[in-house]
Nucleic acid binder design. Sequence first.
RNA 1: GCGCCUGUCGUCAAGCGGUUAAGACCUCGGAUUGUGGUUCCGAUAUGCAUGGGUUCGAAUCCCAUCAGGCGCCCCA
Length: 410
Amino acid sequence: MAIIKIQKGTKDILPSDMPVWYFMEDNARKIFSEYGAKEIRTPIFEATELFARGVGDTTDIVNKEMYTFEKSERSLTLRPENTAGVVRAFIENGMHRLSAPIKLWYKGPMFRYERPQAGRQRQFHQVGVEVFGIKQPTADAEVILMAVNYLNALGLNDLSVELNSLGCPKCREEFKTKLKDVIKPYLSQLCPDCQARFEKNPLRLLDCKVEECKAIYAKPEIQEVIQSDFICEECSEHFSGLKSYLDALKINYSINKLLVRGLDYYNRTVFEIKSNNLGSQNAVCGGGRYDSLVRNLGGEDTPAVGFAMGMERLASLIGNRDDEKTRAFVVSNNTVEGIKLAEELRRAGISAEFDLTNKKFVKQLEKASKVAKFAVILGEDELNSNQVTVKNLDTSEQKTIPREELLKAI
RNA sequence: GCGCCUGUCGUCAAGCGGUUAAGACCUCGGAUUGUGGUUCCGAUAUGCAUGGGUUCGAAUCCCAUCAGGCGCCCCA
């Protein structure tokens, strides 16, 4: 019979992978709560319309990457990201009435129908933070600080923070128009991708990798527009406020005027954190400010900033972590006494294993040395004298002690 | 969705058209009736992603499908 195989773009997270995942999850809880953020868990499927309206129906994510299905005449979608879901929960639970800032963090699986490759799966996991209710750039700074500290806690240092401001809808439109005007004369010389971007997302034109296009964008009159500070005074003030906070916090960052995020809801601050050790999917964290999303989804006008990180990408940077060994392995050929002693240890809060197949002494000890820190030897001699032998399997030290002293010895 | 590359045991692999498909790790058993992590012996793919084809003969060549890798696009 043919075996049923795992689906394309999905991965089993095996017992041997768990140490890394616990490490990421424990640190998320620890670090984010240092900032007063509370965890929220929202459903993995939502009304399709939430993503269409929230993420934006011109984005690739919504257009071609969603897992959508019908049930009882409702159109449902597996969440491709979690900001829309968190905002939905925020609105639905009246969280705007809580005292601002409202800081929420989450982790969980996300689903995107894409061609899998390194650092990209169809089911993957994100950890993220959303901060609601603060329009000042202090919130942007704190969100970036949370991301950086979390990554540092994971031991990840070889990372760079890139920052940009998209301005508000108004000044961004003006910039787009200016950019299109100056590029228009060369439109027919651009690569097909760029020709499509010209209409769909002109801000993305600039990071094209095709040499011919790059040559065109390097022209002085185009560079002049790109390098100009197009954002309006208010946006500009916000941005310099953020930069001064980051400077004060000694967070290294670089301004990348070409940084544009693919989700429609961002305004003003956008940022990415990249690793040089990841190949082409090199962003471990992406985020920014989305001041109009809450209102667009039907809530009270509430400014917000947040970020999301790809946990599989983090995991591949963290590398292997040691599994925690069982504390005690009871070595005994007396099955009844052995299984009882192991349970006694567990009740005392000590993880314990016992050979269920009554293998020979040597085999049991061999097994113990692989999985446990201590071997607790309960042989005939010990049973007769109500003693137990405790052997430290790392140092080979062992001593035979009265049974009452066992708990103190391991 | 497009382009290039890959697919041999649980894992890492040798094999490059000729008869029993190397080796290593892991696992299991033994050397060893109470002292392991080092050593020594033994076991484990009628099978080379799947389905067709070429050939006297195919893991080796061809085609398709599936899966994976890398790049583009996009994103975390």
